[in-house]
Computed example of a mutant assay.
Amino acid sequence: MSLGPGDPPERTPVDPLRVHSAVRGPCLLVEAEGELTILTSDELREHVLADMRAMSGPPLVVLDVGEVSFCDSSGLNAMITLWKAAHGSGGELVLARPERRFRTIIERSGLDRHLIAHRTPEEALAALSTR
């Protein structure tokens, strides 16, 4: 279909980001679903930072990214900010369920040295709980 002079361009709908979190033992499990982009990364960052501030003790955070369909540089920056905040408070932030494409982005950016990934949220929670 061609566009006429008055036709608006068709847009690919943005998959909004949904963020849910729950305390599991000494850890915070954060589940993200959707696109992690310049339009949504602030939402993730502010949600997790607020939850980290509410925790007693050093924040031990599992970020489950198994349902993140896309991540751009703003999303990576949000994760770096969260990782730094956790470490600055004596805690840790790890990833769970990163898909192959997501892992590739982390590896190519060199962030895999800091953002440790686990196959499942349970594996990540167990690793942090023994910390």
Rank of each mutant, 00 (worst) to 15 (best):
A124M: 01
H114P: 10
W83P: 02
P26N: 13
E43Y: 01
T12D: 13
E10Q: 10
E107H: 09
R119L: 09
G110F: 11
S69L: 11
V65L: 14
C27E: 00
P9H: 08
T120D: 04
L82R: 06
L39R: 08
L93E: 14
R108L: 15
L60F: 13
L128V: 15
H47F: 06
R53S: 05
G34W: 01
T12I: 15
D15V: 11
G91C: 13
S41K: 00
R45L: 06
E67V: 01
L125F: 02
G34A: 08
L17C: 07
T120Y: 07
P13L: 12
V68M: 10
P59E: 11
K84C: 03
R18P: 00
R101N: 11
H87M: 00
G34Y: 03
K84R: 14
F102Y: 15
T130R: 15
E123R: 04
M52Y: 06
P121S: 04
L115D: 15
R24I: 08
E43G: 01
G88E: 10
L44D: 05
E67I: 01
V14N: 08
L82W: 09
A32Y: 07
R131F: 14
R103H: 13
S21E: 10
G66W: 01
E92P: 04
R53H: 06
A78K: 06
V68E: 11
E107I: 09
L115G: 15
V23D: 08
V19A: 07
F102R: 11
S89H: 14
V62D: 00
P13T: 08
P59I: 10
A54D: 13
H114W: 15
R103K: 15
D7W: 02
H118G: 03
L28S: 05
E67P: 03
M55L: 15
R11A: 13
P8N: 05
E46S: 03
P9R: 08
F102V: 14
P13Q: 10
A22M: 08
L44R: 02
D64T: 00
M55K: 07
A85N: 05
A124L: 03
S89K: 15
R53V: 09
R45F: 02
M79A: 09
R103A: 14
E67N: 10
R11H: 12
E35Y: 00
C71F: 08
T81A: 11
G6P: 01
L125D: 03
V23T: 12
V65C: 04
P5R: 00
I106A: 11
I80S: 05
M1C: 00
D51C: 07
V19T: 07
E67H: 07
F102Q: 09
A124V: 00
S74L: 04
T104V: 12
L28I: 03
G25D: 11
H20E: 10
E123C: 02
S21R: 07
G57F: 13
I106C: 13
T104M: 10
C27I: 05
D51M: 03
E122A: 08
V94A: 13
G90W: 05
I38H: 06
